[in-house]
């Protein structure tokens, strides 16, 4: 059926004048320190009643741990969910229904400076919970993950197709979950997090150290 339909389409296309595939678009250069650009962009996306900063700059993993513990103060560990990054996780592994948590903590594979976006690659559906079924999504990331703009992100992804290493699911998150359906009034949150916070470290994060250091939050 599919093949036959595509044959039909081929016949239609055969009588059309083929249009060429255009050169890539030239995006304006992102000027300045990418971390500063990122911080400004994400700050501009803050919800109306964010009680905490959108971006906290730290130097290294040790400081990141300290900041993370501070940001999670007063929240019991049972209300905190970490993104499990093990590739084997599947829906079957979770016998109970997923539930909402107060805080979700994740890493990121990239940060987009121009738009203030956080890019996650999710090995499984449930890995998405920590950035979805939570009130506050805390992202721990580092400078070396900064990309200037969406062009860098998606051009890079295209290259990965060739090597066959596309992530199963990639989500580019820009700000909090929001809606303006009712009279175009901005309301935060809609179905996802009320706030996205990024702990941005100058040095790359050592996740083993971070997990150990933030053991009280597990």
């Amino acid at each position: 059926m599919l093949d036959r339909k595509i044959e039909d389409i081929a016949r239609i296309v055969g009588s059309m004048t083929p249009a060429a595939y255009p050169d890539p678009a030239a995006f304006p250069a992102v000027n300045g320190d990418l971390a500063d650009v990122f911080e400004a962009a994400l700050n501009a996306l803050c919800g109306p009643d964010d009680d905490q900063p959108a971006v906290v700059r730290v130097t290294d993993t040790t400081e990141a741990i300290k900041t993370l513990v501070e940001l999670c103060a007063d929240v019991p560990p049972t209300e905190i969910i970490w993104q499990d990054t093990s590739p084997g996780e599947s829906r079957d592994a979770e016998p109970v229904l997923p539930r909402d948590h107060a805080i979700g903590i994740t890493g990121a594979v990239a940060l987009i400076a121009a738009t203030g976006s956080v890019v996650l690659e999710l090995p499984s559906a449930l890995a998405g919970r920590a950035s979805l079924l939570v009130d506050r999504h805390i992202v721990i990331a580092s400078r070396d993950q900064l990309l200037p703009d969406l062009a860098a992100l998606y051009h890079g992804l295209s290259q990965r197709v060739e090597t066959g290493d596309c992530p199963p699911i990639q989500v580019c998150i820009t700000g909090c979950s929001r809606t303006a359906d009712i009279e175009k009034m901005l309301v935060v949150p809609a179905h996802g997090p009320r706030q996205v916070q990024v702990i941005l470290s100058d040095e790359p994060i050592d996740w083993a150290v971070l997990h150990r250091g933030a053991a009280s939050l597990h």
Binding site: A41, S90, T115, L150, C166, P168, I169, V171, T174
Partner: peptide, 18 residues
């Protein structure tokens, strides 16, 4: 569409688990 520089979520579903 909405006068936003970027939408809240752009999901790329590549290798689904559902």
């Amino acid at each position: 569409a909405t006068g936003q520089q970027q939408s809240g979520y752009v999901s790329l579903i590549h290798r689904p688990y559902a």
